[in-house]
Design a protein around this nucleic acid. Structure first.
Length: 945
DNA sequence: CGGATCACG
DNA sequence: GACGTACGTGATCCGA
């Protein structure tokens, strides 16, 4: 006993739970408390305890935790760890459970005010080493790597349980390029953004370790700067030497703390079964509980939480933040589906759906446009592999030898309708707005609904950028969450010229495809819906997005009337003018060319005509955009203005006057846009086919197109828009008293800004103030602002400084927002809508700064989106309560709603609309600024402004 | 199919 | 060690 080597394990509990939280799936225990990180922590302790009898296993073990956020380091440097935002909402309740778990294992849990876990670990490690013990620090914190090494045969090493990796001198040298005793020097140079240790600006891990390795120490590296040849690096080393020296102190571990418990108290031989059993039972860790009884060895591969969790928690794992482990569901089996071809079988399915209370539904149609598509079939799913397809309009091609037996479409809808309208049966869709619109056109009402696409959006908006795995389409969701690739539409119907309508797909194949979609939707719902509560998405889903689906569906079905003759006349006028301009442009160019080709135009302007200032972008092509042409025009190039006019007219013609005529639905005589509820990462809607959110308004010539948007006779159009909503929200969110006051007093906000910034309001200062206001909302840079205001970046920087000084909350808002996003990975609106920014920590500066600007804007733009969505949800009930049954909500353009209503209703409807919009934030959120709404009416959309 | 351009909030 | 600047969209055209 006496000569057995003692081996102390020191567990860095605080850092472990943060890592476990981010790497493990969001599990909850039977009471609904989030326990993902606790589970990871518990399995980690279990694993260590399993090694008790091993040759080099622990003889002594303790868990070290951080007690509070302040430490003696804050006295040296008040900003130390000042960037740390609050931990995520579903992690906070897990902190006390970590202590519970530790006590459950009957292990000492040590924490001390004013000391960080790292310092206690260092002090215990050194003390044990002095006594000749071996020490293993269970952590992956790079600061602790300074301690690694051997003194008189007693070694300190580290264990990263997540990577199952021992860390000793070679691993440290590989990571830092220097031995452990120089790690502190490297850290002092490179700094640490998480702990807010400054280091030297512009020096990262690579340069830091190179410098220290070359010169042998931090001091030597700093001293060497004098003799370096002139460079950025030299300047930085000289200028920020003080930062590095202070950082060196901050990263130094305090190795002589008073030890609150003696080493002997850390001795362990066996983990007593109680109270561990009680703890495991309480939190539903039943597989561990079972093992406790059997005393079996390595971790089991399943547990009652989720089969994937036990495995991934214990070792490295590659759990992604957004992948929920698979609940136990049988593998998907397309041969299990039923083709429903008789009334009896259909009744049976409808009955079972009602009994089940939850059914996934998918419709198959003949086209993608919900306002033109014919219903071809319906599929239902009641459970995994428990799905059917009800073909309703198949056949009509020579693919069928004889027409298949089908339930009559009208009869089928009669049988399904009561179930679809049954308030006690939840219908789950993937993009339900589409199905709702198709079914509504057949007179079928569907309620209540859930939507896996919207759930996914409310959980994961912004995850996976540049289209990499971030979408919310069914195929993507299925691969991401179910690890299953569904049959693709093109595999069933083909593509291009060889494509066939779905109604001509043989029934067996159609069933595989259609029933699978319902099955997948059902499975996705089981996966995604529970995550809402765990991850804090319930509010925005239940209060904003889910109720919005039928509202937007109805708006799409309403459509808006456009005056075809008027558009045709405009097209004709534009065409004539375009032709004339083209002739003049060719004449000025001295040759014919395609004016619409930026490439050819650039060559004409800068090569042939020899105008100065041509700049080629990375595609090797001259830029000929508006700003370039305007400059050329100012320099006396008559061709530039002609091209600008040509561009404006051909844009208006092709995008609007021609395209809108095409978009008129032959059945309704109106234009029906399609809104995407998941199109914009910030939570805004987007509009397609046609896009009615970018109809011209800024120029007189463009506004003519708005004149073609008209009401039915006897009606008017009413446009209601929020005035400066984003600036109001910025004033509220950044708590800028001056701005809040200005809004309360109904002042012109840009003028007020001009007064604050420049001391007087003129046309010029107001315009500049307006530009600056927007720059703030969009995440400012001196260069960006300089470009817009046509001033030097230095001057722009002065203005930014002045702005921050005059409106002191703004800078704090920006810093706090960015810190939160860096820590949590996402931003949040006032209503809890998350937008993820996976590139916020990118090493690529342009990429990172792009994310930062987007992250500054997202809470503001997103809150504005939440507010108008809430107004939309409440609008129709409010109008109905006011007996205004003929007011129809047609369009949404981010901060504007467009209605069509009888002239006689204008007065009373205006009041209701104004009220609903102005009050849309409450009661969930009480704003410090009023929301002002401007309302106009007229015989066209243009006239309504 | 990507880039350039330009329409909107 | 260089990079390249305002956020969020969608439609159209050109040209590889």
């Amino acid at each position: 006993m006496a000569d057995q080597k003692q081996h102390l394990y020191l567990v860095d509990g605080s850092s472990y739970i943060f890592r476990a939280y981010h790497r493990l799936p969001p599990l909850t225990d039977p009471e609904g408390t989030p326990v993902g990180a606790v589970y990871g922590y518990t399995t980690m302790l279990w694993k260590l305890a399993d090694d008790l009898d091993a040759a080099d296993g622990p003889t002594h073990l303790a868990v070290i935790l951080d007690k509070d956020s302040k430490s003696f380091r804050n006295d040296i440097y008040p900003e130390y760890k000042a960037n740390r935002p609050e931990p995520p909402e579903d992690l906070r309740p897990q902190f006390p459970l970590i202590r519970d778990a530790t006590r459950a294992f009957s292990l000492p849990c040590i924490e001390e005010s004013g000391l960080e876990a790292d310092d206690l670990i260092a002090s215990y490690a050194r003390e044990a080493q002095r006594q000749g013990w071996n020490v293993t620090i269970v952590s992956s914190d790079k600061d602790l790597m300074q301690l690694i090494g051997e003194v008189d045969g007693a070694r300190i090493d580290m264990l990263d349980t997540m990577k199952s990796a021992r860390i000793y001198i070679p691993e440290v040298e590989e990571k830092f390029g220097v031995p452990p005793e120089l790690v502190g020097d490297v850290l002092a140079l490179m700094g640490d953004s998480v702990d807010n240790i400054p280091g030297i600006y512009g020096i990262g891990p690579k340069t830091a370790s190179k410098l220290v390795a070359e010169h042998g120490s931090l001091t030597a590296a700093l001293d060497s700067a004098e003799d370096m040849k002139k460079s950025k690096l030299k300047e930085r080393l000289l200028e920020h030497r003080g930062d590095a020296e202070m950082s060196r102190v901050l990263v130094t571990l305090k190795e002589d703390c008073d030890l609150p418990q003696s080493l002997d108290e850390m001795r362990i031989e066996k983990i007593p079964e109680e109270p561990l059993a009680a703890f495991l039972a309480k939190h539903g860790f039943t597989s561990l509980l079972k093992r406790l009884g059997t005393g079996s060895g390595s971790p089991e591969r399943t547990n009652n939480l989720h089969p994937a969790a036990a495995e991934k928690a214990g070792d490295a794992g590659d759990v992604e933040g957004n992948s929920q482990p698979l609940p136990e569901m049988p593998a998907l089996d397309r041969t299990a589906y039923e083709t429903v071809q008789t009334v009896d079988r259909l009744r049976e399915w409808a009955q079972r759906a009602i009994a089940a209370r939850l059914v996934a539904v998918d419709t198959e149609t003949s086209a993608l446009d919900a306002m033109r598509a014919d219903l071809v079939g319906v599929s239902l799913a009641l459970g995994p592999n428990d799905a059917c397809y009800i073909p309703l309009a198949h056949g009509g091609s020579d693919m069928f030898d004889e027409k298949p037996d089908l339930v009559d479409l009208g009869e089928a809808l009669t049988i399904l309708s009561p179930m679809l309208a049954d308030a006690s049966v939840t219908k789950v869709f993937q993009n339900g707005k589409y199905d709702l619109n198709v079914l509504a056109r057949y007179g079928v009402e569907v309620s209540p609904i859930e939507d896996t696409m919207i759930v996914s959006f409310d959980l994961d908006a912004g995850r996976g950028q540049d289209g990499i795995g971030g979408g919310h389409g069914m195929d993507e969701l299925s691969v991401r969450h179910l690890d299953h690739e569904p049959l693709a539409f093109k595999d069933v119907c083909g593509t291009g010229k060889k494509a066939i309508p779905f109604g001509q797909v043989p029934l067996s194949r159609a069933t595989e495809y259609a029933a699978e979609d319902a099955d997948v939707t059902w499975r996705l719902f089981q996966h995604l819906k529970p995550r809402l509560a765990i991850e804090g998405g319930t509010k925005v889903y239940e209060r904003v997005d889910r109720p919005l689906i039928p509202v937007v569906a109805q708006m799409e079905r309403e459509g808006i009337k456009v005056d075809r003759a008027r558009l045709a006349k405009l097209s004709e006028e534009f065409a004539k003018e375009i032709g004339r301009l083209e002739g003049e442009i060719h004449e000025l160019a001295g040759q014919e060319f395609s004016v619409g080709s930026p490439k050819q135009l650039g060559e004409i302007l800068f090569d042939k005509l020899g105008y100065k200032g041509g700049k080629k972008g990375k595609s090797g092509q001259y830029s000929t955009d508006q700003s370039v042409l305007e400059r050329l025009s100012g320099d006396g190039a008559p061709i530039a203005n002609k091209v600008l006019e040509w561009r404006q007219l051909s844009k208006l013609k092709s995008t609007y006057t021609d395209a809108l005529q095409q978009a008129i639905n032959p059945d309704t005589g109106r234009v029906h846009t399609s809104y995407s509820l998941v199109g914009a990462q910030t939570g805004r809607l987007s509009s397609t086919d046609p896009n009615l959110q970018n109809i011209p308004i800024r120029t007189a010539i463009g506004r003519q197109i708005r004149e073609a948007f008209v009401p039915e006779s006897g009606n008017v159009l009413l446009a209601a828009d929020y005035s400066q909503i984003e600036l109001r929200l910025a004033a509220h969110m950044a708590e800028v008293d001056t701005l809040k006051e200005a809004f309360a007093n109904r002042e012109d906000i840009h003028s007020r800004t001009a007064t604050e910034m420049f001391g007087e309001v003129t046309r010029d200062t107001r315009a500049r103030a307006k530009t600056i206001n927007f720059a703030i909302l969009y995440g400012i840079s001196r260069w960006g602002l300089a470009g817009r205001l046509e001033v030097e970046p230095d001057e722009a920087q002065d203005m930014i400084d002045t702005y921050f000084k005059r409106f002191p909350g703004i800078q704090r808002y920006i810093m706090e927002t960015l810190e939160t996003v860096r820590e949590c990975g996402y931003s949040e609106t006032l209503f809890g809508r998350k937008t993820w920014f996976p590139r916020i920590k990118s090493r690529n500066q342009a990429e990172r700064q792009g994310s930062e600007r987007a992250a500054i804007n997202a809470p503001i733009q997103g809150t504005s989106a939440d507010i108008i969505k809430r107004a939309m949800v409440r609008m129709l009930p409010a109008l109905r309560d006011a007996e205004l049954h003929d007011v129809r909500m047609l369009l949404q353009v981010h901060d504007e709603l467009v209605f069509e209503l009888p002239e006689s209703d204008v007065e009373s409807a205006s009041k209701v609309i104004e009220q609903v919009m102005a009050d849309a934030a409450s009661p969930s959120v009480t704003l410090d600024v009023p929301l002002a709404v401007d309302i106009g009416t007229g015989k066209s959309w243009d006239a309504a402004h």
